Amino acid sequence: MGKDIVADTERIKEFGSALSRIHKEFTKAANPADGYGVKDLGSQSVIDKFGEFSSNWKIHRERLTDELEKLAKIATEAGKSYQEIDSSLANALRGEDAKHKKSGKGKK
């Protein structure tokens, strides 16, 4: 105990924003071969494998996007909360300092 807590609130909020962007990209990404044909990929077998991958990926992607969304919200709210707490504490300390200076009880 007794150690100072240090939180880079801007960095935490940036992390939340980055996770939100990743979440958005994951919700768009389906089959990486969408829009490509045999002429582009070389064979129907490759297209079929991408289709299989896409079906499996969809299940895992949905779980992952749910978790990314939750984590993004947590990080964003944590950054905001830390910043609000820090501002409130700083204002309270400034108020106490001002009272002590007026009363002459401040450090000399």
Rank of each mutant, 00 (worst) to 15 (best):
81 S>H: 12
82 Y>N: 03
37 G>C: 06
89 L>D: 13
103 S>F: 02
37 G>Q: 00
1 M>D: 12
11 R>P: 02
37 G>P: 02
29 A>E: 13
102 K>G: 08
29 A>R: 00
37 G>A: 00
92 A>L: 11
66 D>L: 02
29 A>K: 13
4 D>R: 14
14 E>T: 08
3 K>P: 06
90 A>W: 05
36 Y>H: 11
68 L>D: 07
2 G>T: 13
34 D>F: 04
104 G>Q: 09
68 L>P: 01
84 E>L: 09
64 L>D: 04
19 L>G: 06
29 A>N: 05
61 R>I: 03
12 I>E: 01
5 I>E: 06
107 K>C: 01
11 R>E: 08
82 Y>A: 07
94 R>G: 12
67 E>M: 10
96 E>T: 08
86 D>H: 06
11 R>H: 01
8 D>I: 03
83 Q>E: 15
103 S>P: 01
82 Y>C: 10
6 V>F: 09
6 V>S: 15
33 A>T: 04
58 K>H: 11
47 I>P: 04
42 G>E: 08
13 K>S: 14
25 E>C: 05
43 S>A: 11
18 A>C: 00
11 R>C: 02
17 S>V: 03
5 I>N: 08
72 A>C: 06
72 A>M: 01
8 D>P: 04
49 K>R: 10
95 G>L: 11
35 G>E: 08
39 K>I: 06
40 D>W: 00
93 L>C: 08
8 D>Q: 08
80 K>V: 00
74 I>T: 13
88 S>N: 15
50 F>I: 06
53 F>H: 01
13 K>A: 06
30 A>L: 11
66 D>G: 07
60 H>G: 04
15 F>Q: 04
61 R>S: 12
9 T>E: 13
64 L>C: 09
92 A>W: 03
40 D>L: 05
107 K>H: 07
24 K>A: 15
39 K>N: 13
45 S>A: 15
74 I>K: 00
39 K>Q: 04
42 G>H: 00
80 K>Y: 04
56 N>G: 02
65 T>K: 11
7 A>T: 04
58 K>P: 05
58 K>I: 07
4 D>W: 10
5 I>Q: 10
73 K>S: 11
87 S>L: 09
15 F>C: 11
61 R>C: 08
105 K>E: 13
70 K>F: 04
61 R>N: 10
41 L>Y: 02
61 R>P: 03
83 Q>P: 05
95 G>E: 09
